[in-house]
Protein backbone atom coordinates (compact mmCIF):
# COMPACT_ATOMS: atom_id res chain seq x y z
CA UNK A 1 0.00 0.00 0.00
CA UNK A 2 1.50 3.32 -1.01
CA UNK A 3 1.10 6.20 1.36
CA UNK A 4 -1.10 8.98 -0.10
CA UNK A 5 1.39 11.68 0.94
CA UNK A 6 3.92 10.08 -1.42
CA UNK A 7 1.37 10.35 -4.21
CA UNK A 8 1.14 14.10 -3.56
CA UNK A 9 4.89 14.30 -4.06
CA UNK A 10 4.59 12.36 -7.31
CA UNK A 11 1.75 14.65 -8.43
CA UNK A 12 3.89 17.73 -7.80
CA UNK A 13 6.88 16.24 -9.62
CA UNK A 14 4.82 15.16 -12.64
CA UNK A 15 3.03 18.52 -12.81
CA UNK A 16 6.40 20.27 -12.65
CA UNK A 17 8.00 18.09 -15.32
CA UNK A 18 5.02 18.70 -17.62
CA UNK A 19 5.35 22.44 -16.94
CA UNK A 20 1.87 22.74 -15.51
CA UNK A 21 0.60 26.14 -14.40
CA UNK A 22 0.35 24.76 -10.84
CA UNK A 23 2.19 26.95 -8.36
CA UNK A 24 1.75 27.03 -4.62
CA UNK A 25 1.99 30.53 -3.17
CA UNK A 26 5.30 30.89 -1.31
CA UNK A 27 3.33 31.71 1.85
CA UNK A 28 1.54 28.34 1.74
CA UNK A 29 4.81 26.43 1.43
CA UNK A 30 6.26 28.48 4.26
CA UNK A 31 3.19 27.90 6.44
CA UNK A 32 3.31 24.16 5.79
CA UNK A 33 6.99 23.95 6.71
CA UNK A 34 6.45 26.01 9.87
CA UNK A 35 3.65 23.70 11.03
CA UNK A 36 5.75 20.61 10.28
CA UNK A 37 8.78 21.93 12.15
CA UNK A 38 6.70 22.93 15.17
CA UNK A 39 4.76 19.69 15.37
CA UNK A 40 7.95 17.61 15.11
CA UNK A 41 9.43 19.74 17.91
CA UNK A 42 6.29 19.54 20.06
CA UNK A 43 6.15 15.74 19.80
CA UNK A 44 9.79 15.51 20.86
CA UNK A 45 9.25 17.92 23.75
CA UNK A 46 6.34 15.95 25.19
CA UNK A 47 8.47 12.83 25.35
CA UNK A 48 11.53 14.60 26.63
CA UNK A 49 9.54 15.60 29.70
CA UNK A 50 9.13 11.89 30.47
CA UNK A 51 12.76 10.86 30.55
CA UNK A 52 15.87 12.21 32.23
CA UNK A 53 18.02 14.31 29.95
CA UNK A 54 21.35 12.83 31.11
CA UNK A 55 20.59 9.41 29.60
CA UNK A 56 20.48 10.95 26.16
CA UNK A 57 23.90 12.54 26.30
CA UNK A 58 25.89 9.66 24.70
CA UNK A 59 23.42 9.50 21.82
CA UNK A 60 23.58 13.24 21.32
CA UNK A 61 27.38 13.21 21.14
CA UNK A 62 27.36 10.22 18.78
CA UNK A 63 24.99 12.02 16.43
CA UNK A 64 27.18 15.14 16.33
CA UNK A 65 30.13 12.88 15.45
CA UNK A 66 27.99 11.27 12.73
CA UNK A 67 27.31 14.67 11.13
CA UNK A 68 31.01 15.56 11.16
CA UNK A 69 32.07 12.17 9.79
CA UNK A 70 29.57 12.08 6.91
CA UNK A 71 30.60 15.45 5.53
CA UNK A 72 34.30 14.63 5.95
CA UNK A 73 33.80 11.40 3.98
CA UNK A 74 31.76 13.08 1.23
CA UNK A 75 34.29 15.86 0.64
CA UNK A 76 37.25 13.85 -0.82
CA UNK A 77 34.84 11.81 -2.95
CA UNK A 78 33.41 14.98 -4.48
CA UNK A 79 36.78 16.67 -4.79
CA UNK A 80 38.70 13.79 -6.41
CA UNK A 81 36.12 11.56 -8.08
CA UNK A 82 33.71 14.33 -8.93
CA UNK A 83 36.43 16.92 -9.69
CA UNK A 84 34.47 19.73 -8.15
CA UNK A 85 36.18 22.92 -7.03
CA UNK A 86 37.07 23.05 -3.37
CA UNK A 87 34.16 25.38 -2.54
CA UNK A 88 31.61 23.31 -4.45
CA UNK A 89 32.82 20.02 -2.93
CA UNK A 90 32.72 21.53 0.57
CA UNK A 91 29.25 22.93 0.06
CA UNK A 92 27.79 19.68 -1.32
CA UNK A 93 29.50 17.72 1.48
CA UNK A 94 27.85 20.01 4.05
CA UNK A 95 24.42 19.39 2.48
CA UNK A 96 24.91 15.61 2.78
CA UNK A 97 26.25 15.71 6.33
CA UNK A 98 23.21 17.66 7.46
CA UNK A 99 19.55 16.54 7.49
CA UNK A 100 16.27 17.17 5.73
CA UNK A 101 13.26 17.75 7.95
CA UNK A 102 10.94 16.91 5.04
CA UNK A 103 12.49 13.45 4.69
CA UNK A 104 12.28 12.95 8.46
CA UNK A 105 8.57 13.84 8.36
CA UNK A 106 7.95 11.30 5.61
CA UNK A 107 9.81 8.62 7.61
CA UNK A 108 7.66 9.43 10.67
CA UNK A 109 4.52 9.09 8.55
CA UNK A 110 5.84 5.83 7.05
CA UNK A 111 6.51 4.26 10.46
CA UNK A 112 3.28 5.72 11.87
CA UNK A 113 1.10 4.11 9.23
CA UNK A 114 2.76 0.75 9.96
CA UNK A 115 2.43 1.24 13.71
CA UNK A 116 6.16 0.88 14.29
CA UNK A 117 7.29 2.66 17.45
CA UNK A 118 10.47 4.72 17.60
CA UNK A 119 12.30 6.65 20.31
CA UNK A 120 10.50 9.91 20.92
CA UNK A 121 13.61 12.05 21.34
CA UNK A 122 14.46 11.75 17.64
CA UNK A 123 13.60 15.43 16.99
CA UNK A 124 16.44 16.36 19.33
CA UNK A 125 18.87 14.24 17.30
CA UNK A 126 17.46 15.87 14.17
CA UNK A 127 18.41 19.31 15.48
CA UNK A 128 21.87 18.12 16.53
CA UNK A 129 22.59 16.54 13.16
CA UNK A 130 21.67 19.70 11.33
CA UNK A 131 24.51 21.88 12.61
CA UNK A 132 27.96 20.20 12.61
CA UNK A 133 28.08 19.63 8.84
CA UNK A 134 27.60 23.35 8.19
CA UNK A 135 30.68 24.18 10.23
CA UNK A 136 32.69 21.41 8.55
CA UNK A 137 31.60 22.73 5.14
CA UNK A 138 32.79 26.24 5.92
CA UNK A 139 36.12 25.04 7.31
CA UNK A 140 36.66 22.71 4.32
CA UNK A 141 36.00 25.55 1.90
CA UNK A 142 37.90 28.23 3.74
CA UNK A 143 40.32 26.63 6.11
CA UNK A 144 40.29 28.17 9.56
CA UNK A 145 40.76 31.60 8.07
CA UNK A 146 40.39 34.76 10.09
CA UNK A 147 38.22 36.25 7.40
CA UNK A 148 35.29 34.01 8.27
CA UNK A 149 32.96 36.03 10.44
CA UNK A 150 32.01 33.28 12.87
CA UNK A 151 29.61 35.57 14.67
CA UNK A 152 27.40 35.97 11.63
CA UNK A 153 27.83 32.30 10.72
CA UNK A 154 26.61 31.30 14.18
CA UNK A 155 23.69 33.70 13.84
CA UNK A 156 22.76 32.20 10.48
CA UNK A 157 23.07 28.62 11.75
CA UNK A 158 21.50 28.78 15.20
CA UNK A 159 18.87 31.40 14.56
CA UNK A 160 17.72 30.03 11.21
CA UNK A 161 14.05 29.18 10.87
CA UNK A 162 14.54 25.41 11.24
CA UNK A 163 16.47 25.38 14.49
CA UNK A 164 14.37 28.10 16.15
CA UNK A 165 11.07 26.35 15.36
CA UNK A 166 12.28 22.84 16.20
CA UNK A 167 13.89 23.82 19.49
CA UNK A 168 11.02 26.20 20.24
CA UNK A 169 8.56 23.35 19.67
CA UNK A 170 10.62 21.01 21.87
CA UNK A 171 10.64 23.61 24.63
CA UNK A 172 6.89 24.34 24.41
CA UNK A 173 6.09 20.62 24.32
CA UNK A 174 8.35 19.99 27.29
CA UNK A 175 6.94 22.91 29.30
CA UNK A 176 3.26 22.31 28.53
CA UNK A 177 3.22 18.51 28.57
CA UNK A 178 0.61 16.34 26.83
CA UNK A 179 -2.35 17.75 28.76
CA UNK A 180 -1.42 21.34 28.13
CA UNK A 181 -1.05 20.68 24.42
CA UNK A 182 -4.48 19.03 24.09
CA UNK A 183 -6.04 22.29 22.93
CA UNK A 184 -3.68 22.74 19.98
CA UNK A 185 -3.51 19.07 19.02
CA UNK A 186 -6.00 19.38 16.15
CA UNK A 187 -3.70 21.67 14.17
CA UNK A 188 -0.30 20.24 14.98
CA UNK A 189 -0.96 16.50 15.37
CA UNK A 190 -4.28 15.62 13.73
CA UNK A 191 -3.57 17.63 10.59
CA UNK A 192 0.09 16.54 10.38
CA UNK A 193 -0.36 14.28 7.37
CA UNK A 194 -2.58 16.72 5.51
CA UNK A 195 -0.04 19.51 5.92
CA UNK A 196 2.72 17.08 4.99
CA UNK A 197 0.80 16.27 1.78
CA UNK A 198 0.67 19.97 0.81
CA UNK A 199 4.35 20.36 1.67
CA UNK A 200 5.26 17.37 -0.48
CA UNK A 201 3.18 18.69 -3.38
CA UNK A 202 5.35 21.80 -3.40
CA UNK A 203 8.51 19.71 -2.91
CA UNK A 204 7.54 17.75 -6.01
CA UNK A 205 7.29 20.99 -7.98
CA UNK A 206 10.66 22.20 -6.67
CA UNK A 207 12.28 18.82 -7.39
CA UNK A 208 11.06 18.90 -10.99
CA UNK A 209 12.77 22.26 -11.47
CA UNK A 210 16.14 20.66 -10.74
CA UNK A 211 15.85 18.42 -13.80
CA UNK A 212 17.42 21.04 -16.07
CA UNK A 213 20.54 21.56 -13.96
CA UNK A 214 20.94 17.79 -13.53
CA UNK A 215 21.06 17.36 -17.29
CA UNK A 216 23.81 19.97 -17.43
CA UNK A 217 25.92 18.66 -14.57
CA UNK A 218 25.87 15.09 -15.54
CA UNK A 219 25.98 11.55 -14.29
CA UNK A 220 28.40 11.95 -11.39
CA UNK A 221 25.94 14.09 -9.45
CA UNK A 222 23.18 11.54 -10.03
CA UNK A 223 25.40 8.66 -8.89
CA UNK A 224 26.52 10.63 -5.85
CA UNK A 225 22.93 11.64 -5.05
CA UNK A 226 21.96 7.96 -4.76
CA UNK A 227 25.24 6.37 -3.60
CA UNK A 228 25.93 8.80 -0.75
CA UNK A 229 22.56 8.34 1.02
CA UNK A 230 22.85 4.55 0.73
CA UNK A 231 26.32 4.66 2.30
CA UNK A 232 25.20 7.14 4.98
CA UNK A 233 22.19 4.95 5.78
CA UNK A 234 24.52 1.99 6.40
CA UNK A 235 26.54 4.11 8.83
CA UNK A 236 23.33 5.39 10.44
CA UNK A 237 21.93 1.87 10.79
CA UNK A 238 25.14 0.68 12.40
CA UNK A 239 25.17 3.63 14.80
CA UNK A 240 21.48 3.20 15.67
CA UNK A 241 22.09 -0.46 16.43
CA UNK A 242 25.26 0.30 18.41
CA UNK A 243 23.42 2.90 20.49
CA UNK A 244 20.74 0.34 21.28
CA UNK A 245 17.90 2.08 19.47
CA UNK A 246 14.73 0.17 18.59
CA UNK A 247 14.02 -0.98 15.02
CA UNK A 248 11.96 2.16 14.37
CA UNK A 249 14.58 4.41 15.94
CA UNK A 250 17.37 2.82 13.91
CA UNK A 251 15.35 3.29 10.73
CA UNK A 252 14.83 6.96 11.60
CA UNK A 253 18.52 7.50 12.37
CA UNK A 254 19.46 5.82 9.08
CA UNK A 255 16.99 8.10 7.28
CA UNK A 256 18.43 11.16 9.02
CA UNK A 257 21.95 10.15 8.02
CA UNK A 258 20.84 9.51 4.44
CA UNK A 259 18.94 12.75 3.99
CA UNK A 260 20.51 15.89 2.58
CA UNK A 261 19.64 19.37 3.76
CA UNK A 262 17.94 21.84 1.46
CA UNK A 263 16.89 24.61 3.87
CA UNK A 264 19.43 25.38 6.58
CA UNK A 265 22.62 24.45 4.70
CA UNK A 266 21.91 26.27 1.41
CA UNK A 267 21.12 29.46 3.31
CA UNK A 268 24.25 29.22 5.45
CA UNK A 269 26.50 28.27 2.52
CA UNK A 270 25.17 31.09 0.37
CA UNK A 271 26.33 33.60 2.97
CA UNK A 272 29.50 31.89 4.20
CA UNK A 273 30.85 30.26 1.03
CA UNK A 274 29.42 32.48 -1.73
CA UNK A 275 31.74 31.14 -4.43
CA UNK A 276 30.11 27.69 -4.20
CA UNK A 277 27.51 27.21 -6.92
CA UNK A 278 24.15 26.62 -5.18
CA UNK A 279 22.71 24.99 -8.30
CA UNK A 280 24.99 21.96 -7.92
CA UNK A 281 24.18 21.15 -4.31
CA UNK A 282 20.45 21.78 -4.72
CA UNK A 283 20.29 19.69 -7.90
CA UNK A 284 21.84 16.76 -6.02
CA UNK A 285 20.02 17.22 -2.70
CA UNK A 286 16.60 18.06 -4.13
CA UNK A 287 16.70 16.65 -7.65
CA UNK A 288 18.04 13.23 -6.70
CA UNK A 289 18.43 12.49 -3.02
CA UNK A 290 15.11 13.82 -1.71
CA UNK A 291 12.94 11.92 -4.23
CA UNK A 292 15.14 8.83 -3.88
CA UNK A 293 14.78 8.82 -0.10
CA UNK A 294 11.05 9.53 -0.16
CA UNK A 295 10.16 6.99 -2.82
CA UNK A 296 12.65 4.16 -2.27
CA UNK A 297 15.11 5.02 0.50
CA UNK A 298 12.86 4.95 3.56
CA UNK A 299 11.52 1.42 2.91
CA UNK A 300 15.12 0.29 2.25
CA UNK A 301 16.39 1.86 5.50
CA UNK A 302 13.53 0.24 7.40
CA UNK A 303 14.46 -3.14 5.93
CA UNK A 304 18.13 -2.50 6.79
CA UNK A 305 17.20 -1.77 10.37
CA UNK A 306 15.07 -4.91 10.67
CA UNK A 307 17.93 -6.91 9.16
CA UNK A 308 20.53 -5.40 11.50
CA UNK A 309 18.44 -6.18 14.56
CA UNK A 310 17.67 -9.74 13.47
CA UNK A 311 21.28 -10.36 12.48
CA UNK A 312 22.58 -9.01 15.79
CA UNK A 313 20.26 -11.29 17.72
CA UNK A 314 21.71 -14.18 15.75
Amino acid sequence: MIDPVILFFVLGAVAGLLRSELRLPAAVYEFASIVLLLSIGLKGGIELARQPFGNLLPQMLAVVALGLALSLIAFPVLRHLGRFTRADAASIAAHYGSVSVGTYAVAVAYLGSRQIAFEAHMPLLLVLLEVPAILVGIVLARGLSRETRWGSVAHEVFLGKGIVLLLGGVFIGWAAGPDGLASIEPLFFDLFKGILALFLLEMGLITAKQAGSLRRHGPFLVAFGIGMPLFSALVGTWLGWALGLSIGGTAILATLAASASYIAVPAAMRISVPEANPTLSLAAALGITFPFNVLLGIPIYHALSVWAHTFARG
Partner: peptide
Protein backbone atom coordinates in the same frame (compact mmCIF):
# COMPACT_ATOMS: atom_id res chain seq x y z
CA UNK B 1 9.98 44.31 -2.00
CA UNK B 2 9.83 40.63 -2.94
CA UNK B 3 10.55 40.09 -6.60
CA UNK B 4 10.84 37.37 -9.20
CA UNK B 5 12.17 37.22 -12.71
CA UNK B 6 14.83 35.87 -14.98
CA UNK B 7 18.44 36.83 -15.62
CA UNK B 8 21.70 35.24 -16.66
CA UNK B 9 21.69 33.13 -13.51
CA UNK B 10 18.38 31.56 -14.53
CA UNK B 11 14.77 31.92 -13.48
CA UNK B 12 14.31 33.07 -9.91
CA UNK B 13 10.63 32.48 -9.31
CA UNK B 14 10.42 32.92 -5.54
CA UNK B 15 8.71 29.52 -5.15
CA UNK B 16 10.75 28.88 -2.00
CA UNK B 17 13.69 30.27 -0.05
CA UNK B 18 16.55 29.42 -2.40
CA UNK B 19 14.94 31.03 -5.43
CA UNK B 20 13.58 34.12 -3.69
Amino acid sequence: TDARGKGNRGVRDAGWEASA
